[in-house]
Computed example of a mutant assay.
Amino acid sequence: MRVGVVFPQTEIGSDPGAIRAYVAAAEDLGYRHLMAYDHVVGADPAAHPGWSGVYDVDTTFHEPMVLYGYLAAISSLDLITGVIILPQRQTALVAKQAAQVDLLTGGRLRLGVGIGWNAVEYEALGQDFSQRGRRLAEQVGLLRRLWTERSVTFTGRYDTVTGAGIAPLPVQRPIPIWFGAQSPAAYRRVGRLADGWLPQVQPGPELDEARQIIERAATEAGRDPAALGMEGRIHYGHGGAEAVARAAAQWRDAGATHVAVNTMKAGLRTVDEHIAALTEVAGTGVLDPR
């Protein structure tokens, strides 16, 4: 099981020096990959009475593909989007951006995708919030064709491509696509379409039930459920380093191929405090190969 980190972009600010320091520390400590969340715009609560979203207009988010182009030059960590909100983005442009990141990193990108929850963001990007699940399912097949074929002709419900392709192609052909999932419909999409998944629940009955749905959908689609990766998320704020180590063991027993340590929402105020938390976790031996 490979252990990585969740990039704490909402709490370390926008200083490039802080970003470099955090990524270098994570790599030096032995973490294997970095995950970054995605939001293009945030909603202003003053303009949306009753707003209850997790993030708003003042929450700091770096654009993952641009960030990863920068990190490709300074780090050898694997990079995963966790998750790109795919249906609000242009499919061919995502294919091009992901291929470029994969090329610059020598094949170290995993494209985590999901449908999102913020209708305000969909409106700003000119996409239909109500069609997001259906659109994602169509986009995945088109992405894989754009990453593996010189010239693509495709006519779908949401996208049309006529005799066109991207160059250069990525190192990984195709780039692995992992799904964020937290509903039965999303679990079924994982089984039918994904290379791996990012559960929103912890090991226990809910995770077991989700895996059953995924495995059944994969089998019905003629796919091998055992080939699907699974990445859990562990929150440092839920008990500190020792709790992270215990949770990592639970994820390993549950069959996770990856986990990511999230130090956000733990009362940490600076990049140095986030690095100190990662150092504390590394000291438990959780990064040792097993």
Rank of each mutant, 00 (worst) to 15 (best):
G267D: 00
G116Q: 01
T263P: 01
R211K: 14
G4P: 01
G180I: 03
A227S: 14
V140N: 05
I115G: 02
L109S: 02
L125Q: 12
A185K: 15
I80T: 13
V83N: 00
D78M: 05
A266T: 06
G204N: 11
W197N: 01
W178K: 11
F129G: 08
L207V: 08
V57I: 15
P199A: 00
T279F: 02
E149N: 04
G204S: 09
W178Y: 13
S76E: 15
G141E: 14
V54D: 10
G232I: 06
H62E: 03
E63F: 03
L207T: 00
G283M: 08
R233I: 08
E27K: 05
S183A: 07
V161K: 06
W117R: 14
H48C: 11
H48E: 14
G106I: 01
A98C: 09
A249Y: 02
W51A: 06
G133C: 03
A185F: 09
D253F: 02
P199N: 07
N118A: 15
A25M: 04
Q202K: 09
G114R: 00
A249I: 09
I74T: 13
P203F: 06
L142I: 07
L136W: 00
M230R: 02
L268A: 06
R20E: 05
L34N: 04
R189T: 11
E149H: 01
I166Y: 11
D15A: 12
A226S: 14
L136T: 01
R252H: 15
S151K: 07
V286H: 07
V171N: 12
A164S: 03
H62K: 10
A248I: 06
L103E: 14
A266P: 00
G69M: 10
R188L: 00
G163D: 11
L207I: 00
A164P: 05
A282P: 07
D159K: 06
R134N: 12
G229Q: 00
L34D: 05
H33M: 11
G69K: 10
E231G: 12
R2A: 10
S183D: 07
I234H: 04
D288N: 12
R89Y: 12
V66F: 06
A247I: 03
W178M: 06
V171G: 05
S151V: 15
H33L: 14
I84N: 11
G53V: 09
D15E: 12
T148H: 08
W117F: 09
V161W: 10
G165A: 04
